[in-house]
Amino acid sequence: MISLSGERQNARGIIADKINSFDTVRGTSTVKRGFAHMLKNGVVMDVTTVEQAQIAEEAGAVSVMVLDKLPSEVRKAGGVARPASIKIIEEIMDAITIPVMAKCRIGHVSEALVLQETDVDMIDESEVLTPADEFRHIWKWDLPTPVVNGARSLAEALRRIEEGASMIRTKGEPGTGNVAEAIKHIKKVNDELRTVKAIYDSGDNQDLVRIAREFKVSYDIVEQTGKLGRLPVVNFAAGGIATPADAAYLMSLGCDGIFVGSGIFHSDDAKDRARAIVLATTFWNESDKVKEAQKMIDERQSMLGLDVGTLELRMQDRGGSA
């Protein structure tokens, strides 16, 4: 089991007022990571308007991510990409019952605090926006609101978790409609997890120390990961997912769920495609259901994919070395 409990004393939780003579604790690791556990086997959809958020909710999304521009538009527009307008985030929070997430720039503590004050359910410290700090990410333990981070490797994922990330999404290349990078990175993380687990099982603690140094993380988190044989937090796939089959394949690779960005609302059949991607994510191991889902979409309406090799802007590289 992904150990959540037992952290109540250690977590940097906020001790709230005493109610009924019991202590109420907010912002603990259990509460923050537990939120991500509730999203499992679900789809989080990027949206820019109230209307898109309502389509997402109706289609069965577990949450929406509010952006100013979809990643593919960010790619076209160029310039500095910043978080969505607070007013739009609030309008969306008032219109739907499912959780609402929003993105802030990498390392921009004040933007994260603003989003926390806005009461979004989760903050995405995201490479889709222009990074504000080239060297450091946000120290996320101090925020009662959970934060999700992107990662392309196990080392990157564990560094983010040690900074307090409550959830990881393995990065693809956002806004391309090309799933290749997302597949590459989840496979890389899986390979590295197998290696760390094998070392842990062999009892070679010295080799775990070597891994910890190579990954630039603590020994403890490497040991914990080896013992679990998986990431210590929930892990979704993200970046370039455009079709139901894309989603089903990533679920089969062991992802806990899916983030879909431009793939839905940059296609011409958004409503059907949103529904189809949710169905394929839920029933990923039943190929007749995935086929049904795939049949709901029209390839001629899919967003035109981009070849990742020729991109001028590789969003996945942002914040990767930190």
Partner: peptide, 16 residues
């Protein structure tokens, strides 16, 4: 009543 205690930031642990 859904989301009766508020949004995620108000989520909590307590003995019952």
């Amino acid at each position: 009543e859904r989301n009766s205690f508020g949004r995620q930031k108000q989520s909590f642990e307590a003995d019952v």
